[in-house]
Design a protein around this nucleic acid. Structure first.
Lengths: 262, 262
DNA sequence: GGCCATTAATTTCTCAGACAAATGCTATCT
DNA sequence: AGATAGCATTTGTCTGAGAAATTAATGGCC
C-alpha cells in the first residue's frame, strides 16, 4: 500500500472558494455544519482519531480546527467526554466567521429578525455618535464609497462592497472600539444578506437616497438627523427583504422604538 | 542529561488561577500581552520553534494557542512572514475572553468609556424588549438573582455573580440571539469591572434600588419604564466609577442621548 | 542598465506516532 | 448500599520530519 497523500485529488469539495489552510477549511466545514443545525447542541463529535481519519487529515490539523471552533464558543472539549457542541447561548454569534457561516445558508426568519433588531438598536445611535465625532477623512471615505455604490448598484459585487465600506466607515467614525468591532461581523452578515436578497429577487428600490441622507446629516454634524435618517434606512432595508410575513412580535419591537419619540 | 520535563516546577507563574490546559494558558498569556499593549499591532512574534522553545512547551501546544488567538482576530499567520499582531480594528473585542483580558489589567479610560457607551445604547433597549417578551421563568430567575444580590452585596464575589446573573437573564429575556450573545462578553467585562471598582474604593452607594426598578418595570411589561430605569441604572454605574474626569467628548455622547427625550 | 524568470531560503503548515494526564465507569470490598 | 481502587477511553502534550507557500536573491537576457 503506497503512502501517497494525494490531498489535492482525494477531497472533492473542500475549501471551495478561497485557498484556506487545511485547519481553517476544516473549521469552516465543521462550523457551518454546527450553525446550520447539522450537529445539534449537546452532540458529541467523533473522536480525534476517527474524525481525522474520516477527513483524511492529520490529528494536529483536526485539533487546530477544533481549537478554533472552541475559541468561537461553538464547541467544548473535555478529556474522556470528548468534544461536544455547546449550547447556542455560548456561541459567539457576533464573531465575523460565525456570522458569515450563519448567513451562508438560508438564514432562519428568527435569526434574520434578530439581526435587524440589533441593527435597529445600534446603528441609529452609531450614526448619531458618528455625526458628533467624524473627521473629514471619515467623511471623504464615506463619500467615495457612496459614489462607487451609485456607479455599480447593489446588484453587482463591487457595489455591495462599497455599501459595506460605507457602513464600516460610519461605525469607525464613532471612535468607539467596541462599536467598531461590531463592524466586521455585522458588515459580513449584511454583505451575505444582500447577496441573498439579490438572489431571491432583484432589488425593488434603489436605497441610495437614504444613504445620502445619512451622509449629509453626518457631514453637517447633526446627530439627531443622522439618527433619524439611519433609522429610516434600516426600516426600508427590512421592508425590502424578500420575506412574506415577519413574526408576530416583530411589530412589538417597532412599537417599542416608536414610543421613544414621544 | 535526563529528559525530565518538570513543567510544574519550571514555569513560575503560568495558569495562575484556574486549571487551564496548556494551550489555553499560553493563549491567555499571549492574549493579555497583546491587548495590554505589550505586543503592538504589526509586531511579529518569534517563530514557532524559538517561541515554543522559550516557553518550554511543544510546538503543537504553542501552535494551538496561536490558532485560538487568530480565531479571535488578535493575530494573523502567514508563511514566510510569520505571525503578526493584527490591527486593533481586527480584534474581536466583544469576544468574552478578549473582553476579560482587556479588563483584567487597569483598563484605559477610553476603553472604559467605550464599554459604558455601548451599554448605554444597548441595555435600555434590551430592557424594553425584555419587558415585552419576558416569560415568568425569566422573571423568577431575575428575582432570585436580585435577592441573592441584596443578601451578599457587591463587595463579595457571590454578590457580583448574582449581579451578573441578573443582567444575563435580562438579556436572555429579549429572545434575541445576538443580544444574548453579547451577554457573556459584556457580563464578564462588567464582572471584572466591578471587581476593579471595589478594589479602588468601597462602593459609594447601594445600586439595589435601581435594579429593583428595572425588575418591576419588566414584571409589569412596561417597556418604556424599563428603558428609563435601565438608563438610570447605567448612568449611576458610570457616576460611581472611581474615575476623576471623563474625557471631554464623553459629555457629548450623553448630550446626544438627552436630546432624544425632547 | 533594467526587467524577467529561476532558484534559494525561511517560515508556517501538515503529517506521523508515542506517551501523559484526566476522568467517567466498573468491579470489588466492606 | 456505599465507598474505593483500578480500568478504559478520550483529549492533551511531546518529538521529529518533510511539504507547501512566499519572500528574497540571483543570474540570465534584452
Amino acid at each position: 500500500m503506497p503512502i501517497l497523500k494525494s490531498n489535492q485529488a482525494a477531497d472533492g469539495e473542500r475549501h471551495s472558494r478561497k485557498q484556506l489552510r487545511l485547519h481553517s477549511s476544516i473549521a469552516r466545514d465543521l462550523g457551518m455544519r454546527i450553525v446550520s443545525g447539522g450537529y445539534r447542541p449537546g452532540h458529541v463529535l467523533a473522536g480525534e482519531i476517527e474524525a481525522s481519519g474520516q477527513l483524511k487529515v492529520s490529528r494536529s490539523a483536526y485539533r487546530e480546527a477544533v481549537r478554533m471552533l472552541a475559541a468561537k464558543g461553538l464547541v467544548q472539549s473535555r478529556t474522556r467526554t470528548g468534544t461536544r457542541v455547546s449550547a447556542v447561548e455560548q456561541w459567539h454569534l457576533l464573531d465575523p466567521d460565525v456570522l458569515t457561516w450563519v448567513f451562508a445558508g438560508e438564514p432562519e426568519l428568527e435569526v434574520l429578525q434578530g439581526l435587524f433588531e440589533l441593527r435597529t438598536i445600534i446603528e441609529p445611535e452609531a450614526a448619531a455618535l458618528a455625526a458628533a465625532r467624524r473627521s473629514d477623512k471619515n467623511l471623504q471615505i464615506m463619500r467615495g464609497a457612496l459614489e462607487r455604490m451609485s456607479q455599480h448598484t447593489l446588484n453587482v459585487e463591487a457595489g455591495r462592497i462599497a455599501d459595506k465600506e460605507f457602513h464600516s466607515e460610519l461605525l469607525r467614525a464613532t471612535r468607539n472600539p467596541f462599536i467598531i468591532s461590531l463592524t466586521n461581523g455585522v458588515a459580513s452578515a449584511v454583505h451575505a444578506l444582500t447577496e441573498f436578497k439579490q438572489r431571491a429577487q432583484a432589488l425593488k428600490r434603489d436605497p441610495l437616497p437614504e444613504h445620502w441622507h445619512v451622509f449629509e446629516a453626518i457631514a453637517h454634524q447633526d446627530a439627531q438627523a443622522a439618527r433619524a435618517a439611519m433609522a429610516e434606512l434600516i426600516q426600508l432595508a427590512i421592508h425590502d427583504m424578500p420575506v412574506k410575513r415577519w413574526p408576530e412580535n416583530w411589530t412589538d419591537s417597532r412599537l417599542v422604538r416608536d414610543s421613544e419619540s414621544i
